[in-house]
Design a protein around this nucleic acid. Structure first.
Length: 1043
RNA sequence: GCCGGAGUGGCGGAAUUGGCAGACGCGCGGGAUUCAAAAUCCCGUCUGGGCAACCAGGUGAGGGUUCGAGUCCCUCCUCCGGCACCA
């Protein structure tokens, strides 16, 4: 790093001394201690502001310059809000459970607690050197037993709660909610009282008159237990995991490469089911979606969350198996002698049928085959003997592929025929049932009806396996037209085929194409006109219906139903359903009604969201507060026994007793803590759960613990919770857009439902800061070169210092492997924390990704020095002689008010880069002045203080103030002084600027127009032309349209 | 592949959200100060043409809407983030 030359004058800007001094002052005076209601000195008449950073995982590498980006921003806002009279809650802590500490423990045998403790110390020291105004008395760490005691307590609440979908209730925040988590005793009580019952499939029945309802007392204890477990918000289920026997551990998807081998070591990885704790987040799908509307979050993040929840509306449809059912005289007849049908056939009691979910019920007549997922329970049952070996082989192979891999469209579709057929319930047609891995068990019902003409994946599949394609939706004018617009803009090679097709269909177009051949890539205007003609569009749509294959793609849009019912036999129960001619939306309701009336379908809503897999086979996480009895039952550990502390262990290596064994059961490290594992409760033997919680667990509620971090009786006292919640501003990386934020919202809603928190949402406003990247260099062989070894020789020309070999510069995420990590300690040692803060905030918009460029840092250091010299005489160290008590000049006064306006407005919008530009402008204005009035300088120091707090405090004191400026009133501005009296207006003719004129800022349109029309340059330019129109934008410009 | 975002001088970026493209900073060039240098201060700095006033072009590419497009629409290219056990 280039050394910056400092003046050696006695009064120089000595940032090292200044920063140390003020950090000590803040600490000694507890300047940033924030008080809860009820604490002595707390003033709850002031409005509150809870500003939260996403707390870091304390990794061994320490902070790099990317971490503090968001922290600098929140600190600036926190300081600003204090000056605006808010009680500010601004805490910091550590997300200290996590994989790297465990990995390190495996390699070195150093206990994760030791590593983590050390790392936290490093992080804390580093965070303190930035001068952040955190209330450090509130620091928490998720791996602290005093903290995870409550993480376990919350898990226990989920374990002992169920979700009542039909509960309508009003929360303490006045919000009306549908659905609520409730203690499971309430469910048991309702069942025991006989108010509710259970049906044969162990589903809750609320209606007393339901015929198949069983009374609770008639159920065996085993059945009762099974039912209760099936209702819990936290439950056990078998889930596919990536099991790597050689490493003795379960791997994340990202740790498995494309060939199904582990990233570390390249060992084989097997996908196998494992019993896991699950959280029933899916019950909250609708509320997670709905409540998003009231949040002040960036729209893209809301969109991502909505897509993640993935709500779709459509219908479920039954496809009876062709070897079990037939249609006789318009009625379903079952061929299975074992099936005894009681009462009328309904969707619920229809045996031997495949259930599918589809959003496009209107395309049912185009379903020419079905696909079931390889994991589907029916695969084994329906596969015919001659297909069995093929299917089994295929299913085994599919099991090893990840969902991501399976659904990626680049991969060619694969699948095998089961030999079985199903009956399309709307037209009685027999269609083949295939197994293909592009259908996932986890979404919908794990089976689909395939409509090649209306779905891209089905189309590809049908083309590959020669399955008939029947068009059932005819594109209507608008959709054809938009397709044509696209063609007209860019007839590339792919579109050339379609264009040729168009020529065949539409003779007029063919003629035009021949007469006006496309010039380069562009269609001639004449051809475009013909294309857009209504009759041509009609021809094209008709051709698509007749020859979908010729068009080479499915039509997935909405249009008008055709070929429905189609040509197949229509000897199906009930009246024949006719969709022909109906627009898509209407066709959907028509056919869903028909399906429902005939007991073969009903409308349905589906969500992509899946339940949350909540256990990990790791050591360094929260143990589950659960005991397993010998008969396989589970009970929660009593609240008074929490926390269930992690057992001391010296060896963290996972077991790998049988490296080849795909069938070996993964056993978590906790399985070796034999003594810890076994528990005696009243003579009954229990085993503790061997899993630990994922890292998300602790971060789901840390914002609540910050409110009342030392409360041992509860996770957070209700009075303090009510006062501080919700978080007013939450700042963190966009990489958390979905998972962390969705999990935390879910967790919060459970607490809300159970009456433990008062708001339905945790984070009112969210802001995502961008990533700080680094310059990395590679030579021609792709070898990474450290920035120290590189010289810039002219513009964009980088060479290796030693050899002169030229190297390429790339901008990339900071990482050890790219040698482009910048350490903040060094930067602060050279330039100070204030310069660091200013630089990071000045780099660009907070939300944007941007590369760190050390070369730019001195510019901000110079800003600090220039501000220093505005006030301090470097020669003497005293106050600058230019500083005066006289009234400021009008220019200076206006400058101050403008600056105050710009900074205040920018702060409110988190536009910190432009706020700092305003600081520069003010300094540029003041620097040349021989006299600088205190009346403008003092407010300026306050405006500066959130950005460069140490410097501002020091200057404030040198200006004669005794105490910290942290609670001084924020300078207000007079809007009249913040605005110029006169403005420059651009005069355009045909949109080109021809002149500029100065007018009064409040000049009206007529005055501006008159002034413009008499300008010499305007008169000249208008000579011989007729003025058609004059557009005046007040305070901006005039545009004269003339020809 | 799917979802989300971004492409503006040599570099980071700005542009009252459809109204003067390039604020501010870095870098670079010139000047003042100095015995000299550093530091500091002042001036210049999108590109091409012109001595100049000025003219022409210009916001990833191509098209469109509009009096007017960096901003809106369509097609495409490149880069970044997420995709459920990295955090």
């Amino acid at each position: 790093m280039a050394d910056i030359k400092q003046s050696d004058k006695p009064g120089r800007y000595d940032f090292t001394a200044i920063e140390a001094r003020w950090q000590r002052y803040w600490e000694e005076n507890a300047t940033f201690r924030s008080l809860n209601p009820g604490e002595p000195g707390a003033d709850t008449t002031k409005p509150k502001f809870y500003i939260l950073d996403m707390f870091p995982y304390p990794s061994g590498a320490g902070l790099h310059v990317g971490h503090p980006l968001g922290y600098c921003a929140t600190d600036i806002i926190a300081r600003y809000k204090r000056m605006r009279g808010f009680n500010v809650l601004h805490p910091m802590g550590f997300d200290s459970f996590g994989l790297p500490a465990e990995q390190y423990a495996i390699e070195t045998n150093v206990h994760p607690a030791v590593t983590t403790g050390k790392n936290i110390e490093i992080y804390r020291r580093q965070l303190k050197m930035f001068g952040f105004s955190y209330d450090w008395a509130r620091e928490v760490a998720t791996s602290d037993p005093g903290y995870y005691k409550f993480t376990q307590w919350m898990f226990a609440r989920m374990f002992t709660s169920w979700y009542d979908e039909e509960c309508n209730w009003t929360g303490p925040d006045g919000k009306e909610n549908r659905g609520r988590a409730r203690p499971i005793e309430e469910l048991v009580a309702a069942l025991e009282s006989g108010r509710w019952g259970v049906d044969p499939a162990l589903q809750l029945v609320r209606k007393p008159e339901a015929s198949d309802r069983r009374m609770w007392s008639d159920l065996s204890p085993g059945e009762q237990g099974e039912f209760i477990d099936s209702q819990r918000l936290a439950y056990l289920a078998d889930v596919m995991v990536n099991w790597c026997p050689a490493l003795g551990t379960v791997l994340a998807n990202e740790e498995v490469d494309n060939d199904g081998r582990s990233d570390r070591g390249g060992h084989p990885v097997f996908r196998r089911p494992l019993r896991q704790w699950m959280l029933r987040i899916t019950r909250y799908s609708e509320r997670l979606l709905e409540d998003l509307d009231q949040l002040e979050w960036p729209e893209p993040i809301k969109i991502m969350q909505r897509n993640w929840v993935g709500k779709s509306t459509g219908g479920e449809v039954l496809f009876p198996l062709a070897d079990k059912w037939t249609i006789e005289n318009g009625r379903w007849k079952c061929l299975d002698p074992d099936v005894k049908l009681e009462g009328p056939l309904s969707y619920q009691n229809f045996p031997h049928a495949i259930r599918v979910y589809t959003t496009r019920t209107d395309t049912l007549f185009g379903a020419t085959y079905m696909v079931i997922a390889p994991e589907h329970e029916l695969v084994e049952q329906i596969t015919t003997d001659d297909q069995r070996s093929t299917v089994e082989e295929y299913v085994a192979a599919a099991r090893q592929r990840s969902d991501l891999d399976r659904t990626a469209d680049t991969k060619e579709k694969t699948g095998v025929f089961t030999g079985a057929y199903a009956i399309n319930p709307v037209n009685g047609q027999r269609i083949p049932i295939w197994v293909a891995d592009y259908v996932l068990m986890g979404y919908g019902t794990g089976a689909i009806m395939a409509v090649p003409s209306g779905d891209t994946r089905d189309f590809e599949f049908a083309c590959k396996f020669d399955i008939p394609i029947i068009t059932v939706v005819k594109p209507t004018g608008d959709s054809v037209e938009s397709r044509i617009s696209a063609l007209a803009c860019r007839p590339d090679s792919q579109s050339a085929a379609i264009l040729a097709r168009l020529g065949q269909v539409c003779p007029e177009l063919a003629k035009s194409l021949a007469k006006h051949p496309p010039q380069g890539d562009m269609l001639a205007d004449e051809s475009v006109r013909v294309l857009r003609d209504k009759s041509c569009i009609e021809l094209l749509a008709d051709d698509y219906v007749k020859n979908p294959i010729a068009w080479g793609e499915a039509f997935t849009g909405e249009g008008q139903s055709v070929n429905s019912p189609g040509t197949a036999q229509v000897n199906v129960p009930g009246k024949v359903c006719v969709l022909d001619g109906l627009p898509t939306a209407q066709a959907k309701t028509t056919i869903t009604d028909w399906l429902e009336a005939n007991g073969v379908g009903h409308p349905a809503i589906n969500y992509k969201l899946r339940d949350w897999i909540f256990s990990r086979q790791k050591y360094w996480g929260e143990p589950f507060p659960i005991l397993h009895s010998e008969d396989g039952g589970t009970i929660a550990v009593g609240d008074d026994e929490l926390p269930v502390e992690l057992p001391e262990m010296t060896d963290f290596k996972p077991t790998s007793s049988c490296p080849e064994g795909a069938d070996e059961l993964p056993e978590p490290p906790l399985g070796r803590a034999k003594e810890w594992l076994s528990v005696d409760r009243g003579g009954q033997q229990y085993r503790r759960d061997m899993n630990t919680m994922p890292q998300w667990a602790g971060s789901c509620w840390y914002y609540l613990r910050f409110i009342d971090p030392h409360n041992e009786a509860s996770f957070c006292g209700p009075e303090a919770e009510k006062y501080w919640m919700p978080v007013d501003l939450y700042v963190g990386g966009a990489e958390h857009a979905v998972l962390h934020l969705l999990y935390a919202r879910f967790w919060h809603k459970v607490l809300y439902d159970l009456g433990h928190v008062s708001t339905g949402e945790p984070f009112q406003k969210l802001f995502n800061q961008g990533m700080i990247q680094g310059f990395a260099y590679r030579n021609e062989r792709g070898l990474v070169i450290g920035p120290d070894e590189v010289d810039e020789r002219g513009e964009g020309d980088y060479v290796l210092k030693s050899t002169g070999e030229s190297v390429a510069r790339v901008i990339a995420k900071m990482s050890k492997s790219l040698k482009n990590v910048v350490n903040p300690d060094e930067v602060i040692a050279h330039y100070g924390a204030d310069t660091f803060r200013l630089y990071e905030m000045y780099m660009g918009p907070l939300e944007a990704a941007k590369p760190w460029n050390t070369r730019d840092v001195p510019g901000l250091f110079k800003l600090c020095q220039r501000i220093w010299r505005l006030i301090v005489d470097e020669q003497t160290g005293g106050v600058s002689p230019a500083l005066t008590d006289e009234e400021p000049t009008e220019d200076a006064l206006r400058g101050l008010h403008k600056t105050a306006k710009r900074i205040t407005e920018d702060l409110e919008q988190l536009k910190l880069n432009t706020a700092i530009a305003a600081l520069f402008d003010f300094v540029n204005l003041m620097t040349p002045l021989a006299k600088r009035s205190r009346a403008v300088i003092e407010p300026f120091v306050l405006l500066l203080s959130p950005f460069a707090p140490h410097l501002a405090e020091e200057l404030w004191q040198r200006l004669g103030h005794r105490t910290t400026l942290a609670y001084e009133e924020w300078p207000t501005y007079d809007p009249r002084l913040a605005r110029d009296d006169e403005v420059e207006i651009a005069v355009q003719i045909q949109g080109k600027i021809k002149a500029r004129l100065i007018v009064a800022a409040d000049a009206d349109e007529e005055a501006i127009k008159e002034a413009a029309m008499v300008e010499d340059r305007v008169i000249q330019a208008l000579a011989g032309k007729t003025v058609r129109k004059v557009i005046v934008v007040k305070g901006r410009l005039v545009n004269i349209v003339a020809n």
